[in-house]
Design a binder for these strands. Structure first.
Lengths: 133, 133
DNA sequence: CTTTAGCGTTTACAAATGTAAACTATGTAT
DNA sequence: ATACATAGTTTACATTTGTAAACGCTAAAG
């Protein structure tokens, strides 16, 4: 699957649609115009660009449309993450982690969750081909 | 410090300069024109834009210039990372980690290093204000 | 000295992005 | 039926980005 480039502003729209799909433009606009501090027409533009890019689909719903994602959140996050990893870290995932761990606030609980994840990863240590999905 | 927006292509230049500063344009161009598969004038443009943005400085060095970073790698990575975290994860750092751990390949050794980092983080668990730098 | 090879500077241009107004069609309230 | 509000569609425009050619200055070569 080829993930098209999704701009920063468009990501806001996608995140809403992923969370609340099916969702109509009124909802999108009323929420995002506040969060992004921009006008309704602006958000309409983002929605339209996403339709054109094939990231969103729609169907009639009463007097207006209802939107749904055509790209999975997982896939978009993957694409975005790996381009970030490449751009900033030249692919050095270990470095990425240590920087984030250093810079970001993590609750005790989160730290423990991550430790568990790593423990698991180490145990199974699946070769690349076995990665799920 | 206000980090200006650095585009994808410009990041390539910055990474070289951080690694090899002071470095002259010949070196930058000969390396990046291959890596990025683009022409010399293109890379000159990137360099110039970075100068204009205040991301690079220069000094005469024989017949040409020698460039050096005016923004620290740490700071740029921080800025870029937090905007990525916001854009893709709405700030949910725990989720970011678990996705990366799930998706990326980590060697046994790297996993252990991360575990150590987390262990440390847990022990000290510094409140935000105490974060170094 | 004059020419030329190189480097830096200026100009160019299309596509993407952020931002938004103008226009159009249609359902709903007089 | 007719006008108004509303949602969707079209058009607009400045800025940023990717990409690169054109131009001009200076140092080296003839």
């Amino acid at each position: 699957m080829n993930i098209p480039k999704i701009s920063d502003a468009e990501w806001e729209v996608m995140k809403m649609v992923w969370k609340k799909s099916p969702i109509n433009s009124e909802e999108i606009i009323s929420f995002l115009s506040v969060k992004m501090n921009c006008s309704a027409p602006t958000i309409k533009t983002y929605i339209n660009r996403l339709l054109k890019k094939g990231a969103l689909g729609y169907e009639k719903s009463g007097r207006s449309y209802s939107y749904n994602p055509l790209l999975s959140e997982k896939d978009c996050i993957r694409a975005e993450s790996s381009s970030f990893l490449e751009k900033v870290y030249d692919g050095a995932i270990g470095l990425l982690f240590s920087n984030f761990i250093e810079d970001e606030d993590l609750s005790e609980k989160e730290i423990e969750k991550l430790q568990k994840l790593l423990e698991n990863k180490k145990k199974h240590h699946l070769p690349p081909e076995t990665k799920k999905k």
